[in-house]
Design a binder for these strands. Structure first.
Lengths: 278, 278
DNA sequence: CAAATAGTGTCTCTAAGACAATATCAC
DNA sequence: GTGATATTGTCTTAGAGACACTATTTG
C-alpha cells in the first residue's frame, strides 16, 4: 500500500504507448467581390483557408492549417496559435468539429487530430494585410448534396480546383460524419474534416450569434443577411430577416453612402441581450 | 531532397513530446422506481454511471468510467469498450461532449481526455444483469441552475451523495463550458465533464431520435413522454407530446395490462422516416 | 427618371401550448 | 363506482414565410 504521493513519483507515462495529437482548423471567411455595376451591391462568397504543404508527407498538397499540440497548452489554444501564425488574426470563437483518430489516417503513424472551425471577418484580414505568401490562400467553397447521400466539395482558388467526393455516414446522432470517396488532392483525411466543419458551420449559423463574427463592428442589415445566406447557402426575404434579428442588433447613428441607391443605417451587435440567457 | 517514402522511413514520432489520451464516458439511464400505489405509474429518475477508483490517483473517489486509448482503435471505439467493460452493454449512439486538455487536469501528467455521453436503456442493463460489483453504480442526477450562473450538480446513490458546484463560462459559442468551484469529491475534473455532458444531453434530447435509446423495443407513449421529461427536467402536456412525436413512432398490436387504469397501446420507433432526411 | 437597395405593414400558414372531454382498466 | 392513465379534439397564440408597398439615393 503506497500513498498517492509515492504513486505519482513512481508513475511513468512512458510505460504505455502514446499518440501524437494535433489541432487542425477550418477557418472560414466571407469575401465580397466587387461587381462591375455601380448600382449593384457586391456578391459574397464563402471561403476557407488552406495551406500548401511544404514538406512530406503530402508535399505540395493543400491542407487545413494545423500542427502538433505542445506541452502546456490546451487543444483550443493550439488551434488559435495555428490560425494566428497563418493569418495574424486571433479568431473570436472556436467551434469544435470532431476528433479524428482512425488508425492509418496519417502515414506518419499514430496521430490524432482535433478539428475546429472558426470564423474570421474579411475586415480583420484586410487590416493585418495578407503577406501574400503563396502557401496560404482563401479558397472559394462549394458544398452540395448530390444523389444517394453523396456530397460534392469544390474548393477553388484562381486556377487551382480541388474536387472531393464524400459519402455521408448514417450516424444515429446529429453530427455530420463523412467517408472520403475521392480526396480531390487534399492532404490526409482533410476532405472529411472540411465536410464535417461545413456541416457544423451551417447547423450553427442559424444561431444568429455566430454570423456576427464574419462582419466588422458595424454593418448594414443587408450585409448581415447576405452573410447568413452565403454561409447557409439559402435565400431569405429581407422583411422576415429583419424581424428575426431585430432583437440581436441595435442602431448606430451612421449611414452608408456612395452606392447607387438608398443609404442603409449601420447597426452593431447588441450586447447582454437575448440568446445569452435561456 | 528526399522522397516521401524515405521521409516516412526516417520519421520518428518520438522526437516530439506526446500526451497520453483517454476516453471518458458519461453513460445515462432512466430508472423507474416502483411506487406503493398500484394505480400510479412508477416514477422515473435520470441516473449516471460512476465507478469507484481502486487505485491512485483519487483512490476511492467516484469517477466516470474511462481509460487510455490503445493503438489501433479510435477514440469512439475506446469509449464503447470502456462502457462495455463496466455494463456489458454496447451503447447505441455516442455523443461527443468535448475535449479536456487543460494542463494540470490530471496529476499523473500530460493527459488529454475525450469525453462522450451515451444513453442506455434500463431494459438492456437488466437483461445482462448487474454484476453487483460495488465499484460501479448508477447515481441519481440532479443538475439545476442556481444564482449568478452557478450550477449545482447532485449525484446520489444510497447514502453516498456527491455535491459539486460549477460556474458556467461565457463561451461565445453554444457548447456548455464549466468551471469547478467545488468538485464534490469527484475525481479529476470529472465534475466539469458531467456538467458538459448533461448540457449536451438536454440540448439534444429535444431531437426526438435520442430519447428512444433509453427505452426497450416497444413502449407506450406515456413512457416515452416521461423519459423526455426526466432527461430535460421539464413537464409536457400529453396531448401536445403525442402530436409532436406521432411522425416518429408506429403502432404495434400489443397493449399494456395490469395497471390500475386504461391499457395503453405499445409503439415502436418508426424506421426510415422523418429526421433522417433534411 | 431608372435602377437598385432600404425599410414597413400585413396576410397566411403552421406548430406549439392550453385545456376540455371522453374511454377504459383494476380494484 | 373511484381513481388513475389513455386518447382525441379544438381553441389560442407565436413565429416564419410570402408579398405588396413606400422611401431614398446615384448617375
Amino acid at each position: 500500500m503506497i500513498s498517492e504521493k509515492e504513486f505519482l513519483e513512481q508513475y511513468d507515462p512512458g510505460k504505455y504507448p502514446r499518440p501524437s495529437v494535433t489541432a487542425d482548423v477550418a477557418a472560414f471567411m466571407v469575401r465580397s467581390s466587387e461587381s462591375g455595376d455601380y448600382k449593384k451591391d457586391s456578391e459574397q462568397r464563402l471561403t476557407l483557408l488552406l495551406v500548401r504543404r511544404g514538406g512530406h508527407p503530402f508535399k505540395d498538397c493543400w491542407a487545413l492549417p494545423g500542427g502538433f499540440l505542445q506541452p502546456g497548452e490546451t487543444v483550443e489554444s493550439c488551434a488559435v496559435r495555428e490560425i494566428r501564425e497563418e493569418t495574424n488574426v486571433a479568431p473570436v470563437s472556436l467551434m469544435p468539429v470532431g476528433v479524428f483518430s482512425e488508425p492509418g489516417r496519417d502515414p506518419r503513424g499514430w496521430i490524432i487530430s482535433n478539428c475546429y472551425a472558426c470564423v474570421i471577418s474579411e475586415d480583420s484580414v484586410r487590416q493585418v494585410g495578407g503577406d501574400d505568401a503563396a502557401d496560404a490562400q482563401w479558397f472559394e467553397v462549394d458544398f452540395d448534396r448530390g444523389e444517394d447521400g453523396l456530397y460534392l466539395l469544390d474548393l477553388t482558388w484562381q486556377d487551382v480546383s480541388l474536387r472531393a467526393v464524400l459519402r455521408e455516414e448514417k450516424t444515429a446522432f446529429g453530427t455530420g460524419f463523412f467517408h472520403i470517396e475521392e480526396s480531390g488532392g487534399l492532404a490526409f483525411d482533410h476532405a472529411r474534416m472540411i465536410a464535417a466543419a461545413l456541416t457544423a458551420l451551417r447547423e450553427n449559423a442559424r444561431r444568429i450569434d455566430l454570423i456576427f463574427d464574419f462582419l466588422p463592428e458595424t454593418f448594414t442589415l443587408s450585409q448581415l443577411q447576405r452573410v447568413q445566406e452565403t454561409v447557409m447557402n439559402i435565400s431569405l426575404l429581407p422583411a422576415n430577416f429583419r424581424r428575426k434579428i431585430s432583437d440581436y442588433v441595435e442602431e448606430t447613428d451612421s449611414y452608408t453612402s456612395g452606392a447607387g441607391h438608398r443609404p442603409a443605417k449601420l447597426y452593431r451587435k447588441k450586447q447582454t441581450e437575448k440568446g445569452e440567457e435561456a
